[in-house]
């Protein structure tokens, strides 16, 4: 009797290992059956990623810096940010991290675009139907809190090692904020304004594009910003499953205790993060010119 209380009545070791084997076997069968189809499904994505990365690494470096500076200027309209970006990329080149940085840049850009393309519609869906919200929210919770190594296992089992599984891992980790903040932004739109749109006979589409999305933009932009930051923070983990980029030397530095190598590549990641952050934030703010006018 006392035994029952002091020792948790767990499943027997044999039952447990049978259960685990059954799950592993099941997943292995699944990946043997569908792995190739899945790979074929993601093939266009892989080709695009490779093409984009080659474009960035093969193009003459001055041209790349010029293009990035132009994008920065278009986004932020600030000499300070544009100048800082140029200096940061020159330093990256001088310290011989150009190729890795380009690989990471390609990866992050594609991951961000993918997250936006999937995340914003999901957020809209959640805002429209409470049902969708109650289903998607716990999934997002899991995605954000489960240790990334845990979902690397099935991803690698299914798709092996390479760019696409790495991209998927990054997206799983980075997509929740954009979904959440799109949903939140739309739900926070002033009820009076929505009622007015309704009273003038606006259709669902007209309300969404004419009122909800524009007014939710500050939150949506905060979501994009968060998504980029989280994608960048996955760079090192993604390099463990074969993604090229700044994560690879960092990983090497960890296993060999190369302090300087780790620091330099780490700082390159930080530089990318700061550039992305400043540009996306100032761009978001510029879209809200009407908010800066005193009264509200």
């Amino acid at each position: 009797m006392l035994d029952f209380l002091s020792e948790f009545p767990s499943l027997g070791r044999r039952d447990l290992s049978a259960l685990r084997q059954w799950i592993d076997e099941g997943f292995r069968t699944f990946s043997r059956a569908y792995g190739e189809q899945l790979e074929a499904f993601f093939n266009p994505l892989l080709r695009f990623l490779v093409w984009f990365q080659d474009l960035l690494t093969d193009a003459p470096w001055p041209l790349v810096i010029l293009a990035i500076a132009a994008l920065t200027w278009f986004g932020a309209r600030s000499w300070k940010i544009t100048g800082g970006t140029i200096v940061a990329f020159l330093l990256i080149g001088i310290f011989d991290m150009w190729e890795d940085t380009m690989a990471t840049l390609a990866m992050i850009s594609v991951a961000t675009v993918l997250c936006i393309a999937i995340g914003i519609p999901l957020g809209i869906l959640m805002a429209r139907w409470d049902r969708a919200q109650s289903v998607i929210t716990p999934i997002l919770d899991v995605m954000q809190t489960i240790p990334s190594f845990v979902y690397l296992i099935p991803v690698v089992m299914l798709l092996g090692i390479g760019k696409v599984p790495g991209l998927l891992a990054v997206c799983i980790y980075a997509i929740p904020p954009i979904v959440r903040l799109t949903n939140l932004g739309i739900r926070l739109v002033d009820r009076e304004v929505m009622e007015a749109a309704e009273a003038f006979g606006a259709s669902y589409r007209q309300k969404l594009w004419g009122v909800q999305i524009p007014l939710a933009l500050p939150n949506i932009f905060a979501g994009v910003n968060q998504t980029i930051m989280m994608a960048l923070s996955m760079v090192v983990i993604a390099s463990m499953i074969g993604v090229q980029g700044l994560g690879v030397p960092v990983l090497r530095a960890i296993s060999n205790q190369y302090l300087a190598l780790g620091l330099m590549n780490g700082l390159a990641i930080v530089a990318l993060a700061i550039i992305f952050d400043r540009v996306s934030q100032t761009y978001g703010k510029r879209l809200q010119a009407y908010r800066e006018t005193g009264r509200d």
Binding site: V193, A197, F200, G201, L215, Q288
Partner: peptide
């Protein structure tokens, strides 16, 4: 919706204006 678009319009206590649109664009709404 046609009733609301063509036959009845409404003015609200807290105005219900679209903050991201100018006066001109609001009146055009």
């Amino acid at each position: 919706r046609d009733l609301r678009r063509f036959r009845m319009s409404m003015v609200f206590q807290k105005f219900g204006l679209l903050p991201h649109r100018t006066v001109q664009e609001n009146v055009e709404y």
